[in-house]
Design a protein around this nucleic acid. Structure first.
Length: 933
DNA sequence: GACATCACG
DNA sequence: GACGTACGTGATGTCC
């Protein structure tokens, strides 16, 4: 029988989540030998538990112990403040399936394992610690989390297990400058960027402690804030009193969490070999199993991690590609066999076949699965029987297919199962296809994105290229199956005898790439980049693309007609000026007319022997003759009509009435997204005529478009990376950065600044980002090269950090073959050591990449956090344009959306990177994009 | 399919 | 001392 917990008893409370994360990050991504299941965190966790149990001897040993876990992501703190922990990076997806295993591990060690839905582990810990103290016993909290320090004192201590350091009241004072009972007051003022507790802006722990010690406690401080001597500090506290009180409620732990167990239930129990040994053997931890078996003096259990027991782990190179291993699934029984295999392994490579490349209109035709190299299947679902598509033929389905609904019903639980990792190549495509049939695929891994994280800048990341490069195998091409041109067919018309080997092979290739990339990711030190910047984008972008944006066909159509008329008029004028008709859209014909027939000067032929007739050339010629200006006007209209008013109409989805772009995550080498089909990242804005096209991008009835864009993000990042104090100060003071540069460069006081001088300085600022050269600047500003070089020299003189950054970056690229963003994204620069003009290109690209890439990383982080931050609002994120996010929101909720989204965007770098320069976000709203931007 | 041109950040 | 150059994208039309 157990005694009532009380004097003489000693309770240990282990912060389980802290153990897990420490284990996960301390170890390389180990996988279970028999089947590749990610198991690194479980391994580390077990070792830590074991070490903990071993260390519990002597008079100070605990009499009671429990490991406490978090449960659920939504807690009562989110109800108080929806941005609480909103800037947390999502849990790595290879960690998620390991969480339940750490619970099992705890139980296997015969240690109590507690959690409660809607509460953080910290609250349970607080409740138990207070109970133990009230009962007259002692309590040690095994954690280094500063949020728990408020509990210390009167029998409660903390123990940092890694440093083996005990923290008592004096230890807390050392950390916070106050004793435990005032810790929440200090935290409320200082805030916490990790948990996104706002606090008071500009006040850190030191200042907070100073204030609390002076006034006694937080309530007294807020009440008597007017007495604070420093004016700025005084105003901050007065302005943010509510926010500070909210922060205190967020950091204050709930010491009365309702629990369905008592302290007595936590009494220390000795390990039970019959529970522990089978678990360790199942995890295939050889060393640990042996050690514990010896200590418990029991027999070492057999561990079956050999290929005989483990069909999934043969060496990749050993298994040849052979279609004999590819089967067609034609029945529920056969599919169930595959599903059983998937559950045994915990992962599966998936690929979908559809009727087209556009996920919004394409129909699901079949699904392929692979759980082991060389063994894959294809589940055809709606392939048509041969000849069924004849003009008067039937629409019969081919033989040997199971019903679509049955297959989806069976696969849905697998594809949505938290503990089953779904592996794909370009998973955004497959995720969208599955979303169309009501299946939310998660968790996922994506071989295309793994390659992008490791090999960005080196080569493309399409499956065929990856397979050839990393598997030495050329996958079956799709062309012979579908044909080309007018006679091309869709995949549902492909005979099953050809479809099965093609589709199954794709899943096979994907799985093999994954087995190779998964450990390689860690070796290349880009696991973090992949986990935090690549993989989470898949779901975010899939949702945005599926949402689409409403485009008003009538507006476009009317504009198109107007453009046509203007173009026709311009054409007549052009023909009169030239004296005959010709194709105005042909640069070749135009060049010959301008320079050969009319004899205008300045004609330059490019490498193909044709005259250049670009806008810059025509702009120069416009002073000599009327024709170039007409051509320029015509070209502008032609561009707007063909690319925008006409093409955009063809992209309006008939079902949704909206335009759905597709973003490539792995397209641009710097980390930027690219938008295609249609490209919605280059909708006109710079010219007044073009800008009107944005009027056709409208909000749905009763809604409003909201646009938020980062102000000068690349220059701010440059100021941080190159460490330019003058730029930093200017940004922090909200100055006009180009005017400030001009003033500094040309010794003109700000109040005497002219637009012309400012324009030149602006060009220089941008030039710096692009890897400035005298030639390039001269051409851009249309000034002599020597003058441009003079500007650059002066710029370097005024901001010496810039030149150092450029030189350092080039040297780094030469030495390593890549450059890095602040978040660790690597952009390879294979041409950096080349001879000739190539080297110049590569050097400028290397200088630009960390700046452009860091900005891209920042907005990616904002986008990844955005869904959670706006979950409670009637709003959707629709588009990203490099430094801008566009939302659609119910009328009335605009201001709430702007507040939430701006907060996410402005703090997107936190807590991984602390920028010396603050990021600011401008917001606009309106019925259409022209107004909102 | 290459090239020139031009739309965006 | 000469070389040729601003960074990153995608779509369209011409021409071969």
């Amino acid at each position: 029988m157990t005694n009532t917990f009380g004097k003489g008893h000693h309770l240990h409370l282990i912060d389980g989540s802290a153990f897990i994360f420490r284990a996960y990050h301390a170890l390389p991504p180990l996988t279970r030998k028999s089947d590749g299941l990610p198991i690194g965190a479980v391994s580390g966790f077990c070792n830590m538990l074991h070490r903990y149990v071993e260390g519990n001897t002597g008079p100070d040993a605990p009499t009671h112990v429990a490991v406490i876990f978090d449960k659920g992501s939504h807690t009562f703190r989110n109800d108080m403040y929806d941005l609480y922990k909103a800037n947390r990076d999502a849990m790595p997806e290879d960690l998620r399936p390991q969480i339940p295993l750490t619970r099992r591990a705890t139980e296997a060690f015969n240690i109590a394992c507690k959690e409660k839905e809607g509460y953080e582990a910290d609250d349970i810990i607080a409740t138990l610690a207070v109970q133990a103290r009230a009962a007259g016993g002692r309590c040690t909290i095994i954690s280094s989390d500063k949020d728990l320090m408020q509990l210390v004192g009167d029998g409660v201590e903390m123990l940092d297990a890694m440093k083996n350091k005990r923290i008592d009241r004096d230890g807390v004072f050392e950390k916070f400058g106050v004793y435990p009972e005032r810790v929440v007051d200090v935290q409320a003022l200082a805030g916490d960027s990790v948990d996104n507790v706002p606090g008071a802006p500009g006040i850190g722990i030191k200042t907070a402690a100073l204030l609390i010690n002076e006034f006694g406690d937080l309530d007294a401080l807020l009440e008597r804030a007017a007495e604070i001597k420093q004016p700025k500090r005084r105003q901050t506290l007065i302005d943010h009193a509510d926010q500070i009180r909210l922060s205190r409620r967020l950091v204050l732990l709930d010491e009365a969490t309702p629990l369905d167990f008592t302290l007595e239930d936590l009494e220390v129990r000795t390990p039970d070999p019959d529970q522990l040994m089978p678990f360790l053997a199942e995890m295939e931890f050889r060393t640990l199993t042996k050690r514990i078996a010896d200590q418990l003096k029991v027999e070492m259990p057999e561990i079956n991690d050999t290929p005989a027991n483990a069909p999934a782990a043969p060496e990749i190179a050993d298994v040849p590609f052979d279609k004999a291993g590819y089967s067609q699934v034609d029945s529920a029984e056969a599919l169930q066999g595959w599903i059983d295999q998937i559950y045994e392994r915990g992962y599966v490579a998936v690929d979908t076949e559809t009727t087209g490349l556009n996920e919004m209109t394409a129909e699901l035709v079949g699904i392929s699965l692979c759980v082991e190299p060389g063994t894959a299947c294809y589940i055809p679902l709606i392939h048509k029987a041969a000849g069924s598509d004849d003009l008067f033929g039937s629409d019969d389905l081919a033989e040997g297919q199971m019903p679509l609904e049955t297959a989806l019903e069976m696969l849905k639980p697998v594809l949505e199962d938290e503990s089953i990792l779904k592996i794909g190549q370009n998973m955004k495509y497959d995720a969208k296809v599955f979303a169309q049939v009501g299946i939310t695929v998660a968790p996922i891994d994506d071989t295309m994105l793994m390659s992008y994280a490791m090999h960005g800048g080196l080569h493309g990341h399409g499956m065929d290229a990856l397979s050839e490069r990393y598997l030495g195998h050329t996958p079956l091409p799709i062309k012979p199956l579908l044909g080309s041109g007018k006679s091309a067919i869709t995949f549902d018309k492909v005979p099953l005898s050809e479809a099965v080997p093609y589709a199954a092979e794709d899943a096979d290739v994907t799985l093999r790439l994954w087995q190779q990339f998964k450990p390689a990711l860690h070796r290349a030190q880009v696991t973090k980049v992949y986990e935090t910047l690549e993989r989470p984008m898949v779901a975010v972008l899939a949702d945005m693309e599926r949402a689409g944006i409403k485009v008003d066909r009538d507006t476009l159509s009317r504009m198109s007609n107007a453009f046509s008329q203007k173009m026709a008029a311009l054409e007549d004028e052009v023909y009169t000026l030239v004296g005959r008709k010709f194709n105005v859209g042909s640069p070749k014909q135009l060049g010959e007319i301008l320079f050969d027939e009319m004899g205008l000067q300045g004609g330059k032929k490019g490498k193909t022997g044709a005259y250049a007739t670009g806008a810059d050339v025509l702009e120069d010629l416009a002073t000599e003759h009327e024709l170039p200006r007409r051509i320029l006007d015509w070209r502008q209209l032609s561009k707007l009509k063909s690319t925008y008013t006409d093409a955009l109409q063809d992209h309006i989805n008939p079902d949704t009435g909206r335009v759905h772009t597709s973003y490539s995550i792995a397209g641009a080498s710097t980390g930027r997204l690219a938008s295609t089909d249609p490209n919605l990242q280059n909708i006109p804005i710079r010219s007044e005529e073009g800008r009107r096209i944005r009027e056709a991008f409208v909000a749905e009835e009763g809604k409003t478009l909201v646009a938020l864009d980062y102000s000068q993000i690349e220059l701010r990042i440059l100021a941080h990376i190159a460490d330019i104090p003058a730029l930093k100060t200017a940004f922090d003071d909200g100055q006009d950065i180009h005017a400030m540069t001009a003033s500094e460069m040309f010794d003109v006081p700000l109040d005497e600044m002219t637009p012309e001088i400012r324009r030149q300085a602006k060009a220089i600022n941008f030039g710096v980002i692009y890897g400035i050269s005298g030639f390039g600047l001269a051409r851009n500003l249309r000034i002599p090269r020597s003058e441009a070089q003079g500007f650059i020299d002066r710029y370097f003189e005024r901001f010496p950090g810039i030149r150092a950054y450029m030189d350092d970056t080039k040297a780094f690229a030469k030495e390593h073959g890549y450059v890095e963003t602040l978040f660790g994204r690597r952009i390879h620069t294979p041409n950096i050591g080349a001879k000739g003009p190539q080297a110049g290109f590569a050097a400028r690209a290397a200088i630009n990449a960390p700046i452009q890439g860091t900005a891209a990383d920042v907005i990616r982080r904002a986008m990844i956090r955005m869904p959670a931050a706006i979950a409670e609002l009637p709003a959707k994120m629709l588009l990203q344009v490099h430094d801008e996010l566009l939302f659609e929101v119910d009328q009335g909720a605009q201001d709430a959306l702007i507040e939430a989204a701006r907060s996410v965007m402005e703090s997107a770098a936190d807590p991984v990177v602390h920028l010396d320069v603050k990021l600011t976000v401008d917001a606009g709203q309106g019925p259409n994009w022209a107004v909102a931007h």
